[in-house]
């Protein structure tokens, strides 16, 4: 079995995706990009509770890296086109997760993405976002619909945690792009110091 890094958001999908990877016997590390002050602390506390359940279920330590993503969001909002903000945000999440994968000796990244649930989850946006990294990306939920994901979440006991109250991401633009192209995204990234931003984010990672 392989070692992988799972992006965790605190929502319904990512603990289900993590459950599938653990069930197959993969050794997983969790990564959370902490979006405060654009959210509250609820995503973080939900993830701690998700991991408590999955650590017990699979007798795995599942380390959690928490990385500050708020400063990145501020720079993106100040310096780049808001319309493609969700794709830009995802590219930084993937880059940071890849750095953690290198640190942990992981050979793949994983996510709870399913097609079409939110603005960032169109094929063109996924392509633009994941072009930022070289490691393969596994999406255990890609062919499931929301009802199926929720049913599994209830079975493993993470649904009630995920649906607790919380502040939605305030950095999401009013009209997020559902189609993006890489040339457009790279032109936006020319305006900012991508490497320094990722360095700063990863340097302040805390392991829980």
């Amino acid at each position: 079995m392989a070692r992988g890094v799972m992006l965790m958001s605190g929502g319904i999908d990512s603990p289900v995706a993590l459950h599938y990877m653990l069930r197959l016997g993969h050794e997983m590390t969790a990564v959370h990009l902490d979006n405060r002050p654009f959210t509250d602390d609820s995503p973080y506390t939900k993830i701690l509770d998700h991991l408590e359940i999955l650590r017990a279920r699979y007798a795995q330590p599942i380390p959690l890296y928490v990385l500050p993503h708020g400063p990145t969001q501020v720079t993106l909002m100040r310096e780049t086109d808001r319309h493609v903000g969700c794709v830009m945000c995802r590219r930084f999440m993937w880059r940071s997760a890849e750095r953690i994968a290198e640190r942990e000796g992981a050979t793949f990244l994983a996510t709870g993405e399913a097609l079409g649930q939110v603005a960032s989850q169109t094929l063109s946006n996924m392509r633009s976002a994941t072009a930022a990294v070289a490691l393969p990306i596994v999406r255990p939920l890609i062919g499931l619909d929301k009802q199926e994901i929720e049913r599994v979440a209830r079975e493993i006991g993470t649904y009630e945690i995920s649906t607790r109250p919380g502040v939605c991401c305030q950095a999401v633009p009013d009209k997020p792009a559902t189609r993006s192209n890489l040339v457009q995204i790279l032109a936006q990234e020319d305006r900012i110091d991508v490497d320094r931003m990722v360095d700063d984010c990863v340097r302040h990672a805390v392991v829980r």
Binding site: P37, F38, D40, Q73, V74, M77, R78, Q170, A171
Partner: peptide, 17 residues
Amino acid sequence: VVDARVMLIATLPPEVT
């Protein structure tokens, strides 16, 4: 206060966008 250009986030408290 955090100035994200298209919004401010102020800590009164509570924190407000």
